[in-house]
Design a protein around this nucleic acid. Sequence first.
DNA 1: AATAAAATTGAGTGAATACTTACTTAATGC
DNA 2: GCATTAAGTAAGTATTCACTCAATTTTATT
Lengths: 227, 227
Amino acid sequence: MPKSPPSNSTRLKGKIRKAEIIASAASLFAEKGFNGTKTREIAARAGVSEALIFKYFPSKEDLYGAILAEESPVPRLLSQLRALAEKGNDEEVFGLIAKTIAGGMPDTGLMRLILYSALENHELSQMFFRNHIRLFYEFLTGYIQRRIDERVFRPMPAVIAARSFMGMLMYHRWLSELFGAHLAESPEEMARAFVDIMMNGLRRPVRRKGSRPGTRASASRKPGSRS
Amino acid sequence: MPKSPPSNSTRLKGKIRKAEIIASAASLFAEKGFNGTKTREIAARAGVSEALIFKYFPSKEDLYGAILAEESPVPRLLSQLRALAEKGNDEEVFGLIAKTIAGGMPDTGLMRLILYSALENHELSQMFFRNHIRLFYEFLTGYIQRRIDERVFRPMPAVIAARSFMGMLMYHRWLSELFGAHLAESPEEMARAFVDIMMNGLRRPVRRKGSRPGTRASASRKPGSRS
DNA sequence: AATAAAATTGAGTGAATACTTACTTAATGC
DNA sequence: GCATTAAGTAAGTATTCACTCAATTTTATT
């Protein structure tokens, strides 16, 4: 064959090895953290020699940083949510988030990886936070703010509401998977209950005529609320 | 002096040193995890020689385990809560929890220590979970169940409600302290907003028309159709 | 087939690290 | 005073770790 372009299938081999090494490293870092993972183990799991790792990555730190390229479930979830948000059906928007997270996404490995990274103060976690988590919060906070402006949700700091909801979901995952504190309820039941609590917590209540004495009506409500 | 008991001030010296070593180790393990902390650093921070550490603790693992003796803020909070719970004022019960946790308890060091321990699968975290966190959840779940039975809260799985509330609070702390995602709001504002959302999320909504109590009345109402 | 280049490795290396040993110094009991 | 014991350490040791280097095998090109 004449001057065909040199790149085709075969040229990928290096990249493939590199990706294999990254995958092995990611799973080990997720299990044992940066300091707990030895380069020898990474090599063994990837089925290559230790030396090859340092051919592709100048140092263990660099290998750790390369894991960033891994995909995250956030963008996909986010695009689904934006579609749902158009329709303005709160139960569906919050329900999708709840089902996604209570249902096991992001997977345990990624969660552990990010947590380790945060504890060890590696830039990996900061990067992931900025590029994925932050985007997600901006969406959710924006959505909640919109619904507050539309007088569907009660007035409150939208960012706190967003954090509250995510807290319910993520902390539940962490308790289950980090501390083994599993509950009897199925992920679907959990998701339904979380959404249920959150919706009632956010929505403008039907005005009570006489609330019990002793408990002051909690929320500062704007006067002139119809509903 | 006759047979006076041998213990007094000087005889304590060993215990004091031991405690100093444990404190130094605890702060370092909280900062860098088990694998990230070197015995030389522990010795330096405690102001003793490395060899002395191994005089008191057979191994680094044993030293790690000894940190268990540290006190936790849970028992004190729990006894305050039991008193408040007698009076049955929900805002105060939930408010105290929220203010305690949003206000910085348990401290960052203990939180990091437990998290590291959970990730590294050390028994420290399991022990802490059983002896402290679990007790707390049992109280909170019991309280919520009582209020459901008293028809103040809506029917729902009490354990999920408890987990939801703690999730709001703990996840907020973790985001703030692990990822540096601080919010502008003060801890008091945060606590108030969390309690506000939770109270509205839990309480039985007052309906003008008759609604059948006892049956699940949760997520039946369509939200998107302009209030 | 010959050559160049890329992929891969066995066998190290120096620096750390958890833990030991053999020793000194200080306090206590009688 | 003086033996006994506790507190403390300097100087190791064996091992492990991240990383290197020289050499070999595999693949691509002409």
